[in-house]
């Protein structure tokens, strides 16, 4: 079992100032799967990962990482895990190859052992021939890919990635996704956190949505969407009448009868329904309003469960 978390609670501070950041999380990763943790900022994703790695003590609950109890044997367990942290932490004084060699040294891997694997690791990260390149000369995407290669020096059973594609351009994101799929195909288990629903939908075999330190739902992306949201969405925006009323006013008047559920966010109405035929026919007669009809996705579930207010 790559990772098993039972009843994890993490409090910061004590007494009246205590904040409970994680409030009873249960997770069980299956070997070879890709599992995504989704949640708004402050949901407890990173804290859960830090507890799992034994970098901070749990207030209560039990954690088993690669079959070893954490924090008691966290050091031994981490020898079998690779981590891509949220913030870049490559050594700016070293070249790409030196970064890999020095990091392998932290696992007790000798230079003579890691050096022959460097071309392969760099190629995996799409950094062929960059072994002598300085870190400052790399783009953000290249740095993240090198961090991924660095996380693989110990051939980990479990790879943990904290927001691996935040801040990357689409090309870099697609390359990382493709590499992560390759890793799971080769048997590596992956646990990742992300804000991007499309990322989770594409990569994850299973996922959990966290908010305020609790898991709200857990399952395969399809199961989660099917269980928690109507299959079709019609987004309505634009001008409703010449007096300047918009989609929100239209929704007040009509959405309740034409859709199962409607959420208004600013001047856009999100109408959720099992069958959009009547709704679309009605909207076709409202020339000022514009519509977008699409299948429901994970983001709709996420917003339904965690709300539309900003989290900072």
């Amino acid at each position: 079992m790559p990772l098993e978390i039972n009843g994890l609670v993490k409090r910061f501070g004590s007494g009246a100032d205590a904040r409970e950041v994680v409030r009873g999380i249960d997770l069980k990763l299956r070997p070879g799967e890709c599992f995504a943790l989704l949640g708004p900022n402050g949901a407890g994703k990173t804290t859960t990962l830090r507890c799992a790695l034994g970098l901070t003590g749990a207030s209560s609950g039990s954690i088993t990482l690669c079959g070893l109890p954490v924090p008691e044997q966290a050091r031994e367990a981490r020898a079998r895990v690779g981590v891509v942290p949220q913030l870049d932490s490559l050594d700016p004084d070293f070249t790409c190859a030196e970064n890999l060699i020095v990091f392998a040294g932290y696992f007790g891997i000798r230079e003579s052992e890691i050096r022959p694997r460097i071309p392969e690791l760099l190629a995996f990260a799409g950094l062929e021939g960059k072994d002598k390149a300085r870190i400052q000369s790399l783009s953000g995407g290249m740095k993240r890919r090198l961090t991924l290669a660095r996380a693989l020096v110990n051939k980990p059973e479990l790879l943990i990635l904290d927001e691996p594609t935040t801040g990357l351009d689409p090309q870099a994101r697609h390359l990382i996704w493709e590499r992560l799929r390759r890793l799971t195909a080769e048997g590596t288990t992956i646990l990742l956190t992300t804000h991007f629903m499309d990322e989770a939908e594409r990569l994850a075999n299973r996922l959990a949505i966290l908010d305020a330190g609790r898991i709200l739902v857990q399952g395969t992306p399809r199961e989660v969407i099917a269980a928690h949201i109507e299959p079709q969405v019609v987004e309505v925006f634009g001008e409703w009448d010449s007096a300047g009323a918009g989609a929100a006013a239209w929704a007040e008047a009509h959405a309740a009868t034409l859709s199962k559920r409607c959420e208004i966010s600013g001047e856009t109405a999100f109408c959720y329904t099992d069958d959009a035929t009547a709704l679309l026919a009605h909207l076709a007669r409202q020339p000022g309003l514009r519509t977008l009809h699409r299948p429901a996705n994970l983001e709709d579930v996420f917003l339904k469960l965690t709300g539309r207010e900003l989290r900072d």
Binding site: R75, R78, A79, P85, S89, D91, P92, Y106
Partner: peptide, 14 residues
């Protein structure tokens, strides 16, 4: 600044 220690702590080093 460089978060070097954080990176090292992800390895089997305390």
């Amino acid at each position: 600044v460089q978060k070097t220690w954080e990176a090292i702590m992800n390895a089997p080093i305390a």
